[in-house]
């Protein structure tokens, strides 16, 4: 069964059809790319998938479960985690605490337990710390665990955002322009990381990206959006050679 199944998804703001009749099927473990020119509606699709916007029409199913119209928190609990185009870290918290914040719903204990330091507090915090360090190690951030997140270099901040999203133990990971603002070396490293996350955690990943080298390098399937509508869908090599796609990107 498909991990993510989107049928006839539409949203309009006033008279503007930002996303119109959008369909998407992503198999479990697939690395899927969503591309398109600026303003095509890619981030709007992400915002629909994560409950920031409520769709005017359509159905979203995650692993068979209907998550259409739920709020952000419940959708995250159902198993969708994301990163943001403009990095959104908890800048005043340590790198470790950023990841531990991601465990919020997976290693719970009550506020009372926290204030009165009951045994469960120490046990859970210890578990959280060791799990967080494992995740940080995967992203090569373990040496910076005590840094404030806001003090990390740019490339590492991007990685920390992915690490934090992974801490929520998602079924589907959404990456919004992960390579934005990175130099070619950092992009190469990021590609390795994304591929590693997919293989290591058997993760299904949907990413938005403008960097065609990254898209061509790691995505197995692509959907091209243009003016809120699907222009083309299929295997990466076929899509990138489609004349309609080339026209949309480069003009006539």
């Amino acid at each position: 069964m498909a991990m993510l199944e989107v049928n006839h998804l539409s949203i309009s703001f006033g008279g503007l059809h930002a996303v119109d009749n959008f369909n998407l099927n992503i198999e479990k473990g697939c690395l899927y790319g969503l591309i398109g020119p600026n303003g095509a509606g890619k981030t709007t699709v992400f915002n629909l998938l994560t409950g920031v916007y409520k769709p005017t029409e359509g159905i979203i199913r995650l692993d068979g479960q209907d998550i259409t119209g739920k709020n952000t928190i419940d959708i995250n609990k159902a198993g969708v985690a994301r990163t943001f185009q403009n990095i959104r870290l908890f800048r005043q918290l340590s790198v470790l605490d950023n990841v531990k914040a991601g465990f919020h719903n997976h290693h719970p204990y009550s506020t009372f337990t926290g204030i009165f330091r009951l045994p469960k507090y120490f046990k859970t915090e210890k578990e959280m710390t060791s799990r967080a360090m494992e995740i940080l190690k995967v992203f090569d951030l373990d040496k910076e665990a005590d840094y404030l997140a806001g003090n990390l270099p740019y490339g590492k901040q991007r990685k920390l955002e992915i690490a934090r999203a992974m801490a929520t133990e998602p079924k589907l990971l959404l990456l919004d322009e992960p390579a934005a603002g990175m130099n070619p070396n950092e992009t190469q490293e990021l590609m390795d990381t994304i591929r590693f996350v997919r293989d290591h955690f058997d993760m299904t990943i949907l990413l938005i990206e403008h960097d065609m080298k990254l898209v061509g390098g790691i995505c197995e399937e692509l959907t091209v959006l243009n003016f809120g509508q699907v222009l083309c869908q299929g295997e990466t090599s076929a899509v990138l050679n489609d004349p309609a796609v080339i026209t949309a990107y480069l003009g006539e």
Partner: peptide
């Protein structure tokens, strides 16, 4: 005792996460 222990617990982390970035905090289920 109450304030310090609250701040350095799961709830305190959630409080500070919400302060630093509300949208990101909601995106990880807080």
């Amino acid at each position: 005792f109450i304030v310090q222990n609250l701040v350095h617990s799961r709830s305190g982390r959630a409080i500070m996460a919400a302060r630093d970035n509300r949208i990101a905090a909601e995106s990880i289920g807080i």
